[in-house]
Design a binder for these strands. Structure first.
Lengths: 220, 220
DNA sequence: GTATGTTTTAAACGAACGTATGAATTATAG
DNA sequence: CTATAATTCATACGTTCGTTTAAAACATAC
C-alpha cells in the first residue's frame, strides 16, 4: 500500500508492549506475554529490536519525542513574545504531558504511565534513558524558570521544580487511582480541569514567598 | 540473652531485603540475592516469611508503622490545641517521612525508598498493601485538611493533596539524583532545610486562590 | 542421658526467563 | 520463472526464579 511503514509485526509488538509495560510494569513483562498477546512469534522481538531495552526505547521515543517537541514549541512561542511569566512556563511544561491521552488516545496514556513507573523504579534500565529523552527540555525549561523566578535562589528553584515534577509524575501515573479513591469525585478524564488545577498548584508553589529559614545565596 | 527477639537469621534477612528492595527494586530482587548477601540459607525466607510478599510486608511494617504513629501523634497534638492551620498539618504529614533517615539511619532511608518505588510501580504487589499501611493516616489527614481548607471545594482539595503526595514521594525516592543533577547545589542531606522547602511549597499550593476556571460545588 | 520441638541445611522441583539458531516462509527484483 | 533478500517460524539453549522436601543440627525440658 504506502511506503516504508514499520511492518505489521513491529507495530503490533510496540503497541502490545506499550500496553503491558504500562499496566504490569517493564521489569515483570516478559517477551512471552508480549508476543502471545500480539499474536506474533517469540523471536520477533529480538529480530526487530535486538533486546528488551531496545524495545523499551523504541516504545518510549515514539510517543515522548513528539510530546517534548510540543513542549519546546510552546516555550519557543512564549519566549518569542518577550519574557514569559511563571504560569505560562509551567503550562508549557505540564500541558503536553497531561494531554497525551487526547493526542494519542490510549497509547499516549500508556507511554506516559511507563515513564512514570520507570521514573520511580528504574530497575534494569540504564541511567542514560532519561537523559536521552529529556536532556533538551530539561535544559530549556531550567533556563526559562531561572529567568522567570529571579527572586528565588538557585537551590530553592531546583527543589521546587523537583516538587513540581513529582506532582506531575504522580498525577500522570495514578490519577485513575485517585478517581476511585474519591468515589468519582475527582474526574481524571476531565483534562482541561486537571491541567488548570495542577498549573495553579505548581505556580503557587514555585512563586511562594521565601521564608527566612530557607538558606540560599545569590540566585541566578 | 534477652527475651523473644526475632532470631538472628530473621533479622538479617529483613535487613538485607530492605537494602536490596530499596536499591534494586522489589520485583527484580531474588531470594538468592538476599540470602547469599545475608549469609543465610535459601530456604530461610520461606521458613520465616512464607512468601516473598510476606517478607515485603514484614520489612515495610517494621519501619512504616512507627512513622505513621508519629504522624498521628503530631496531628493529635495539633488538634488538641484547637483547629490547626494548613502549614502545621502539612508538616505533621511530611516531616515524619522526611526524617526517617534521621530516626532509623540507612534503614529508614531504605524503607521509604521501597515505598516510593512500589508506589510508582506496584508490580506483583497486591492493592491492599497501601491501604494496609496507610488507611488510618489517610483518613485522619484528609479530615484535617478538610477543616483547615474550608474555601477549597472537596474535589480540588483531593487533587491538591494528590499533588503534595506526588511531590513528597518523588522527593523521598530521588532526592539524591537531584543532588548530583545540580552538582551538589541541592543538598539532600540537609533534612531541616528540605522539610522547610517542601512544607512551604506544599502549603502555598494547597492554599492557592481558586481561579474562576476551576469547577467544584460546595466543598466539605 | 533421651525425647521433643525449632531452626538450618543441601538438594531438587517445575516453571519461566531473555536470547540464539537454522530452517521455512514470504516478499522483491530481474 | 529464478534468484535474493527480508521476515517469520518452531525449537532449543543455558539461567534463574520462588518454592518444596527431607534430613541434619540445634535448643530445651525432663
Amino acid at each position: 500500500m504506502s511506503a516504508p511503514q514499520p511492518s505489521d509485526t513491529k507495530q503490533k509488538i510496540m503497541d502490545t508492549a506499550e500496553k503491558l509495560f504500562a499496566t504490569d510494569g517493564y521489569s515483570v513483562t516478559s517477551f512471552r506475554n508480549i508476543t502471545s498477546e500480539a499474536g506474533v512469534n517469540l523471536a520477533a522481538i529480538n529480530y526487530h529490536f535486538q533486546s528488551k531495552e531496545g524495545l523499551l526505547m523504541a516504545v518510549l521515543h515514539r510517543r515522548i519525542d513528539p510530546m517534548n517537541q510540543q513542549r519546546l514549541e510552546m516555550l519557543d512561542a512564549l519566549e518569542a513574545g518577550g519574557a514569559p511569566d511563571v504560569e505560562s512556563i509551567v503550562r508549557a511544561m505540564l500541558e503536553p504531558a497531561l494531554r497525551m491521552k487526547e493526542r494519542f488516545g490510549v497509547h499516549g496514556e500508556h507511554a506516559i504511565r511507563i515513564l512514570g513507573k520507570l521514573h520511580g523504579d528504574p530497575a534494569g534500565v540504564p541511567d542514560e534513558l532519561f537523559s536521552d529523552l529529556f536532556k533538551e527540555v530539561f535544559e530549556r525549561f531550567t533556563a526559562a524558570f531561572s529567568s522567570a523566578l529571579p527572586g528565588i535562589p538557585a537551590a530553592e528553584r531546583h527543589w521546587r521544580l523537583h516538587f513540581v515534577i513529582g506532582a506531575m509524575a504522580h498525577t500522570l501515573v495514578t490519577s485513575l487511582k485517585l478517581e476511585e479513591l474519591t468515589c468519582g469525585l475527582c474526574d481524571a478524564s476531565d483534562t482541561d480541569a486537571m491541567v488548570e488545577r495542577i498549573v495553579v498548584f505548581a505556580t503557587a508553589g514555585l512563586t511562594a514567598p521565601l521564608p527566612a529559614s530557607i538558606p540560599g545565596g545569590s540566585g541566578s
